[in-house]
């Protein structure tokens, strides 16, 4: 049996509100498991407890009840973080460090030294396409670049698990596409990814599995296709269908008492349209 990458059992987190008798329950009895190699999306509106759950998994916040584990090691152990890389929401990092210095700093925190550290830094700068900006201070980086250097930082010690908090928030569609490609690339390399997002559309194509949180409770959980599929409906998309063919189909439907729910011309998504447009005339980006 393989060890799950992340195990969350009966997790509850209550934040006391200072000077009031009330308490805020951020997460309530949460159970979930992320299998190794999976891309798991934790979805839900802002304030649903996604970030809190991630922070507890990373040991940044202690749980009120329940346990979280990374590859079988309790999150409260500092050693459990050997195997995980984290990219927080809208990371800033130290403005006065260059891209390369930032990676070296985080590398040192993970015990990397000398040639190995240098090699790893170069490799990651190439991975996130920031080689040219590697000697520039982060103060001059764009949002998308910061997100990418953040991802590189998370990967510095070759972790088996990467945790991403709202990785595409505030990034333009092209940048967010790049990040999604990077995530898929991680998946190909066998790295488990746990990410949170409030944008379902953005993650549906990359996540193997999603959990939907609302007010600290896991309301839905499963494979993306299963969650999105409406089981008693089927979608047909026809090309060059003549009116006769359509007439025959509707006659057949009448005969078999099948109800036609909707008939329409398919549309591309707005996002797809935007991407299409920006691809033809490459807009100045990341500068």
């Amino acid at each position: 049996m393989t060890e799950p990458a992340v195990t969350v059992q009966n997790l509850t987190k209550v934040f006391p509100i200072p000077f009031r008798r009330t308490k805020l329950v951020a997460v309530r009895g949460l159970n979930l498991e992320v299998a190794p190699g999976q891309v798991y999306g934790l979805l839900g509106p802002n304030g649903s407890g996604k970030s809190t759950t991630l922070k507890i998994i990373l040991g940044l916040v202690t749980a009120s009840a329940g346990t979280t584990k990374i590859f079988g090691r309790d999150s409260r152990e500092v050693g459990s973080r050997e195997a995980v890389g984290f990219l927080p929401e809208n990371p800033y990092f130290y403005k006065y460090l260059t891209g390369a210095e930032t990676l070296r700093f985080y590398g040192k925190l993970c015990g990397l030294r000398g040639k190995k550290l240098q090699a790893r830094t170069d490799e990651l700068l190439a991975l996130v396409s920031l080689e040219e900006a590697s000697d520039r201070r982060l103060g001059g980086y764009s949002k998308g670049m910061l997100q990418r250097i953040g991802l590189a930082q998370a990967l510095i010690q070759e972790p088996k698990l990467v945790v991403l908090d709202e990785p595409t928030a505030g990034v333009d569609p092209a940048g967010s596409r790049e990040i999604r490609d990077l995530i898929l690339d991680l998946k190909r390399r066998g790295i488990t990814v746990l990410l949170s997002s409030h944008l379902l559309a953005q993650v549906q194509e990359i996540c193997d599995r999603v959990g939907i949180l609302a007010n600290g409770v896991l309301v839905r959980e499963g494979r993306v296709e299963d969650l999105l599929a409406i089981e008693n409906q089927t979608e047909l998309i026809l090309e060059n269908a003549t009116p006769e063919v359509l007439g025959q189909i509707s006659a057949l439907l009448d005969q078999t008492k099948t109800r036609l729910v909707e008939q329409r011309r398919p549309q591309t998504t707005l996002e797809g349209l935007f991407l299409e447009a920006t691809k033809t005339s490459p807009a100045p980006r990341d500068s």
């Binding site: 940044l60 890389g85 929401e89 809208n90 990371p91 998370a154």
Partner: peptide
């Protein structure tokens, strides 16, 4: 404020 503390403490740093 800059959330850099998250990235540092999410590394194996006591």
């Amino acid at each position: 404020e800059d959330r850099t503390i998250y990235t540092i403490l999410a590394k194996p740093v006591p």
